Amino acid sequence: MKILQVIPHLGSGGAERFVVDLSNELIKHGHEVVLLTFYDLEGKYGFYKNDINKSVKHISIHKSIGFSLKSVWQIIDIVQREKPDIIHSHVNSLQYTILPQLFMAKGVHTVHNEAHLEASGRLEVGLRKFVFKHNLIQPVTISQESHDSFLSFYGKEAVLINNGRTVDSNIVISNEVKKEISSYKKSEQTRVIIQLARFQSQKNIPMMARVTNRLYREGFDFALLFIGSTENKPIVDEVKSVMPPCAHILGERNNPLEYLKEADAFALSSLFEGMPISLLEALAVGAVPVCTPVGGIPNAVIDGENGFLSTDNKEASYYEAMKRFLETDMMTLNLMSQKTKQSFAPYSMEECAEKYLRLYNNLLKTKYEKF
């Protein structure tokens, strides 16, 4: 089977990490994969480019910022040349792939966030509603909550395939990472918390900074490390103005799993989510999650068993969740960490890719209704 995966770029983000992992896993299953990006994999758009399996063929259409009708025809030319069986689009690439998905191959589109938030503008929303309503392109959601949002927004069912992540169970933490994290600790009892997320409104990082500042002033011994893109300067400046002295902004890291494995907890203060890849990474290495209960997070984290969930995404309840983590003894946290690792099983990329392959095969055996 030949599969064309389409995503605008491979910057540091959950959907981008997912597409690279899925492409690599499909190669392992003996399939041919072409990864099409709109932008060249340079600078911020190529964060994951070195993680692509060498057997994955990468094509860029060298697109510039903004809508481009020329890009639609470029993609059609690429599809005519590559002749894929499946065109699998992600995030906001669907408006560029609709024509070849309708007329040149079977189309799949994964919705990586809440349905009403992923589509932007009347034209894109209208196109999506049309193709999904008439079963012309197969939508996929990544958690029960994202599925429910899709049903509510489009009035149509979608296939639900849990998000997946490839994680090496034998990750070795480098001496450099150990030394760096140790430098942030005040004592042997200092608990290390990692917030792995881009500085963007969705992640609500200023709230995290305010909550931890309050806990720091109350005398709790912890270090908070922010890992992720810091391009949004206004949010970075706001975080800096309210974060406690024990918090440190590290920026992007190409080895976040090492930091998570060395940490005691993974924190996420999001206002909304699909199924965050960073959470799956935390589960895989046993970093106990302390999260807001948004998107697919409550499907993976059971409060008090394998992590801590706030009752909502408000500051007061997130403060209580973080405080519960800091007040829990280390023996209990170590047991929770083991349960955290066990929770990762349904979210492995191996299982995720097998479900996508079954979907691809089913689509190739059937024909969409004509319109």
Rank of each mutant, 00 (worst) to 15 (best):
V192H: 06
I193P: 00
I193F: 01
I193T: 01
I193C: 01
I194C: 01
I194S: 01
I194Y: 00
I194W: 01
I194M: 01
Q195H: 08
Q195C: 13
Q195K: 10
Q195E: 15
L196Q: 03
L196K: 04
A197D: 09
A197K: 13
A197P: 15
A197Y: 08
R198S: 14
R198I: 10
R198V: 05
R198E: 05
R198D: 11
F199M: 11
F199C: 13
F199V: 12
Q200E: 14
Q200F: 09
Q200G: 15
S201V: 13
S201P: 14
S201N: 14
Q202G: 14
Q202D: 11
K203D: 09
K203M: 06
K203R: 11
K203I: 10
K203T: 08
N204I: 04
N204C: 05
I205D: 01
I205T: 03
I205A: 01
I205H: 01
P206N: 06
P206L: 10
P206M: 05
M207H: 02
M207D: 03
M207S: 14
M208K: 05
M208P: 02
M208F: 11
M208W: 08
A209Y: 00
R210E: 06
R210L: 11
V211H: 03
V211I: 12
V211S: 12
V211E: 06
V211Q: 05
T212Q: 05
T212V: 08
N213D: 11
R214K: 09
R214S: 02
R214P: 01
R214H: 02
L215N: 00
L215K: 00
L215I: 00
Y216V: 05
Y216E: 08
Y216Q: 05
Y216W: 13
R217H: 12
R217Q: 07
E218I: 00
E218K: 01
E218Y: 00
E218Q: 02
E218G: 00
G219K: 03
G219E: 03
G219T: 02
F220L: 07
F220V: 03
D221K: 03
D221H: 06
D221V: 06
D221I: 12
D221N: 10
F222N: 09
F222Y: 08
F222I: 14
F222C: 13
F222P: 08
A223T: 15
A223I: 13
A223G: 04
A223E: 10
A223M: 08
L224R: 04
L224C: 03
L224F: 13
L224P: 13
L224G: 04
L225I: 07
L225S: 03
F226Y: 04
F226E: 12
F226P: 10
F226L: 12
F226T: 06
I227M: 12
I227P: 08
I227H: 09
I227Y: 14
G228S: 07
G228F: 10
S229A: 05
S229E: 06
S229N: 08
S229V: 02
T230A: 10
T230R: 07
T230E: 09
E231T: 11
E231R: 08
E231M: 12
E231C: 05
N232T: 10
N232M: 12
N232F: 08
N232S: 11
N232E: 12
K233F: 15
K233M: 05
K233G: 14
K233P: 09
K233L: 10
K233V: 10
